[in-house]
Write a protein that binds this DNA or RNA. Structure first.
Lengths: 234, 234
DNA sequence: GGACGCATGTGCACGATTTCACAAAGCAGG
DNA sequence: CCTGCTTTGTGAAATCGTGCACATGCGTCC
C-alpha cells in the first residue's frame, strides 16, 4: 500500500454535494465560525442532516461526537478529496458570445481553474484578448494542452462544431470535458463529460409549471404556502 | 374527471431526460427520419434502450410493436408533456456580464422562453438595450411579472444579491427559478428552484481527475481504451 | 474521576431508479 | 390466414440513494 492509500469510491450523489458543502463551509470560515454541526450544515445546504453525516463519513471520521466538525479541517479535507489542492488549468474551445462570457466570468480564474487558453476556428478572432487570454487558432489546441498540462476542456462552440471540438480535445489528451453545447457528445470510455444545457433546465422548469397549471384547472390544492425550505432542486 | 385527465406523476429522472430525447428527435425529424426504435434513440442519447422505453411509457403507449416510434408524434407528445406547446416568458434579474450573456444567448428566445424583461439595481444600466430587452429598475420587477404573466425567473446577480432577488421574484408571483448564483436559495415550498453552478461542475470534474491521478500512482489500469460510448455524464 | 448530555457514525428499512427478461402485438411474406 | 421476425410495454429483480434511529464516543461539569 502506498502512503496515500487508495480511497474508497465516493458515490456520485455525494460528490455532487461536496462542492456545495465546501462553498458553505468556506463562507462560514470567513465569517469566523470555526465549528459546525451536521444539522447546521444541513440547514445551510438545504439537505437532511443524516445525509450530511453520511456524505462526510466517506471522507473519513473527521467530526467530534458531541461537538461537531472543525470547519477549517473540513474545508481542507473536502478540497483534498475534490483535488482542489492545486489549480486545474482549462482550455476553452470557442470564443463566441458564450466562450467570451465564460472566460470573463470570475468563476474560472478565482476558483482554481485558470483559463490557460482559448481557441477558435475563426481567423477573425485570433489574437483578440479575452479576459487576459489571447484567442489562438483551433489547430494549436494540442500544443496548448501539452504545453500547459491541461486535462480539462470546455466546449463553448455552436452545436454543429461540438463533436469535432470534443474529438480534438480527446486527441490532444484532455480527459474531462465540460460541454455547453446542446448535443450528446460521443467520447471514448474513460473520458468524463458533464453537460450544462440551459434549454434542458428551462424545459424542466416548464414541466413543473405545466403540471401546476393542470393541477389548478382540476381545483387541486396548491402546495402548502408559508413554510420555508432551502433549495428545492426538485 | 376533466377532459384532460390528470397525468400520472413522471419521475424526476425521466423528466430530466425528456428534453434530451426531444432535442434528438427534433434533429432526426429535420433530417428526414420519420421512425425510430428505442434502441436507436437510446444510442443517440447515450442511455439504455430499456430506459428509453420506460421513460416514454410514462407519456402513454405511443410506439408500435415491431416497428418503433413515429418521430413527429413523439416530438409532439414530449413537447406537450413538458408544457412546450406555448411560450414561457422569463425575466432575468441582473444585467451584468452573465445576465447580458444569457439575454443574448439564442437558447432563450429561440426555444420558447422569450426574455420578457431584464432588471438590475444599478441605475447606470437602466434603459441600455440587451438583446432587444430594455434594462429596467429592480423595483419594476413585480409590475413586469404581472404585466407579462411571467412564471419563470432567472437569477444572474452576484451571490450576495441572489437571495434578495429570489425573495422579490417570489413576492412578484414567480413560481420557478433558475439560479446561476453560487448560493443555496431559501424559498417557500412549492417554488421550484434549479441551480446551475459552473464551479460545482468544474469541481466534480476535478474530483474525477484527481482520482485518475491517484489511480495512476498506484499503477492501476486506466479505463478500457478503444470503445466508444455516448455521453458519460459520470 | 464519574455521570450526563450532545452530536457523530452507521446498521437498517424504505423508496426511487435502473436493468433484465419476456409476453404481447404489429407487420411482412408465403 | 398463418408463421416468423421484430420491437414495444411492463412485471420483477437488482441497484442505488435517502432517512431513521440509536449505540458510541467525546467533552463538560460537578
Amino acid at each position: 500500500m502506498p502512503p496515500h492509500r487508495t480511497r474508497r469510491r465516493i458515490p456520485d450523489a455525494t460528490v455532487a454535494r461536496l462542492p456545495i458543502y465546501l462553498q458553505i463551509l468556506a463562507e462560514q470560515s470567513a465569517g469566523g465560525v470555526d465549528n459546525i454541526s451536521s444539522e447546521g450544515l444541513a440547514d445551510l445546504a438545504g439537505v437532511n442532516a443524516a445525509k450530511v453525516r453520511k456524505d462526510l463519513s466517506y471522507l473519513g471520521s473527521y467530526g467530534t461526537r458531541g461537538v461537531g466538525y472543525d470547519v477549517d479541517h473540513l474545508v481542507y479535507q473536502i478540497r483534498r478529496e475534490l483535488g482542489l489542492d492545486h489549480d486545474w488549468p482549462v482550455v476553452i474551445v470557442g470564443a463566441g458570445n458564450l466562450g467570451q462570457a465564460l472566460a470573463g466570468y470570475g468563476g474560472f480564474n478565482d476558483r482554481g481553474f485558470p483559463v490557460a487558453g482559448i481557441v477558435d476556428i475563426d481567423p477573425g478572432k485570433f489574437d483578440s484578448v479575452v479576459a487576459g487570454a489571447r484567442v489562438r487558432p483551433l489547430e494549436e489546441l494540442a500544443q496548448i494542452v501539452a504545453a500547459k498540462g491541461i486535462s480539462i476542456g470546455v466546449i463553448a462552440t455552436p452545436p454543429t462544431a461540438a463533436q469535432d471540438a470534443a474529438d480534438r480535445l480527446v486527441k490532444a489528451g484532455v480527459t474531462s470535458i465540460l460541454n455547453f453545447a446542446p448535443i450528446v457528445l460521443s467520447v471514448p470510455v474513460g473520458i468524463v463529460v458533464r453537460k450544462v444545457d440551459l434549454a434542458v433546465e428551462l424545459q424542466i422548469l416548464s414541466y413543473h409549471e405545466q403540471r401546476r397549471s393542470v393541477a389548478d384547472q382540476n381545483g387541486q390544492l396548491h402546495a402548502v404556502p408559508a413554510e420555508r425550505g432551502r433549495g428545492a432542486t426538485a
